[in-house]
C-alpha cells in the first residue's frame, strides 16, 4: 500500500516534468535512437539495393539480406575496400588544416577588431558576411570563381600565366575545398573569440604592462589563458563540424576528381546512394565515424579537465 502511494506520489510530483520533456525525448528516440540501432544492425548484414525489400505497387517484396557478422568492419578496417585509409588520412588533414586556419585567422582578426580603431563596426560587418550566406550558396559562388573560365584563371592569364583546372586535379582540388571551408568558418571563430576577449578584465593588461611585459608576453600570459574556455568549446565544435562537413565537399567537387577530395561522410554517402546502393557498407562507415568522434570528444574533455586541475 505504501509502495503504491509512493509510486503515485512520485507520479504526481514528476508528471509535469515528464510531460514537458516527453515530446523531445520521443522524437529523439524514434528518429535518432531507432535509426541508430537499425544502422548498427544493418552494418552486420549484406543489405544493398537489390535485397533490401520494397513495395512495388501492391506487391511486397520481402528483404533477402542476411547476417555477415563483422565482415563489413573487417573489410573497412583491413583496408580491403580500398578507400578507408586514404579517405581517413585526407579527412584528418582536412580537419586539422581547417580548424588550424579557422582558429589562427579568427583569433588574429578578433584581436585586431578588439582594439579601438576607426570603422570597427564596418569591418566587423564585412568580415562576418561569409557566415550570413547560406552554405550552399557560398559553395556555388566559389565554384564559379574556380571555373576554368572563372575569375581566378582570368587573373592568372592577365599576368601571362596558364590557367589552372582547379577542380580537376587532386592537389589543387584539395587546396580549393580547404580555401572554401576556411573562408566559411572564420567568421564564427572570430565572433566567438571577440566575445571571449571582451570578458578579460582590462586591469589584467594594465598590471602586465606595469610589470613590463612585452605585447607578445601579454598575449601569452593574459590573452590566451583568458580565452581558454572559449578556445576549448570552439575547438571541440570546430573539429566535430569540420570532420562531418558534408556540403562544402559535396557541392564544390562531389568528392572528385576520382574521390580524391572525399572525406569519410561524403564517401559513406556516395557508397549509400550512388550506383548500386550499398546500405550495409555505408552503415558500417557511419558507425566507424561515430566511434572516432566519441573517442575524440572523450579524450579531449579528459585532457582539458586535467589541464584545468593543474592550472
Amino acid at each position: 500500500m505504501r509502495a503504491l502511494r509512493g509510486i503515485r506520489g512520485s507520479f504526481d510530483k514528476y508528471w509535469y516534468g515528464w510531460a514537458m520533456a516527453a515530446p523531445v525525448v520521443i522524437v529523439m528516440l524514434v528518429l535518432v535512437g531507432y535509426p541508430f540501432f537499425w544502422g548498427v544492425y544493418l552494418s552486420t548484414t549484406n543489405a544493398d539495393e537489390s535485397n533490401i525489400g520494397r513495395d512495388i505497387g501492391v506487391n511486397h517484396i520481402a528483404p533477402t539480406y542476411k547476417s555477415v557478422g563483422l565482415h563489413n568492419y573487417w573489410d573497412i578496417l583491413s583496408g580491403n575496400d580500398g578507400h578507408f585509409y586514404s579517405t581517413l588520412s585526407w579527412t584528418l588533414i582536412w580537419t586539422f588544416v581547417n580548424v588550424f586556419f579557422h582558429i589562427a585567422i579568427g583569433l588574429g582578426l578578433a584581436i585586431l577588431l578588439n582594439r579601438k580603431i576607426r570603422f570597427r563596426a564596418g569591418y566587423r560587418l564585412m568580415l562576418i558576411l561569409p557566415w550570413a550566406i547560406p552554405g550552399f550558396v557560398a559553395a556555388f559562388a566559389w565554384r564559379l570563381l574556380y571555373n576554368d573560365n572563372g575569375v581566378f584563371n582570368a587573373v592568372l592569364k592577365f599576368f601571362g600565366m596558364h590557367g589552372v583546372q582547379w577542380l580537376s586535379q587532386p592537389t589543387s582540388a584539395k587546396i580549393a575545398v580547404i580555401a572554401v571551408n576556411v573562408w566559411m568558418g572564420v567568421p564564427f571563430m572570430m565572433v566567438s573569440f571577440l566575445g571571449g576577449l571582451q570578458t578579460i578584465p582590462s586591469e589584467l593588461y594594465e598590471a602586465a604592462e606595469m610589470d613590463g611585459a612585452s605585447p607578445w608576453q601579454r598575449f601569452r600570459m593574459v590573452t590566451l589563458p583568458g580565452l581558454r574556455p572559449v578556445m576549448m568549446t570552439v575547438t571541440l565544435l570546430g573539429v566535430i563540424w569540420t570532420f562531418n562537413k558534408f556540403d562544402v565537399i559535396f557541392l564544390v567537387t562531389e568528392g572528385g576528381p576520382a574521390g580524391s577530395t572525399d572525406i569519410l561522410v561524403t564517401h559513406a554517402y556516395q557508397v549509400a546512394f550512388q550506383n548500386i546502393r550499398q546500405y550495409a557498407e555505408a552503415a558500417s562507415y557511419g558507425v566507424v565515424i561515430l566511434s572516432m568522434l566519441i573517442v575524440f570528444a572523450t579524450v579531449y574533455r579528459r585532457s582539458q579537465a586535467k589541464l584545468e586541475v593543474q592550472a
Binding site: V32, F36, F246, G286, V287, I289, L290, L293
Partner: peptide, 8 residues
C-alpha cells in the same frame, strides 16, 4: 554525424 543516420 548524418552519415550514421542517413541510410537507416
Amino acid at each position: 554525424p548524418i552519415a550514421v543516420l542517413i541510410v537507416p
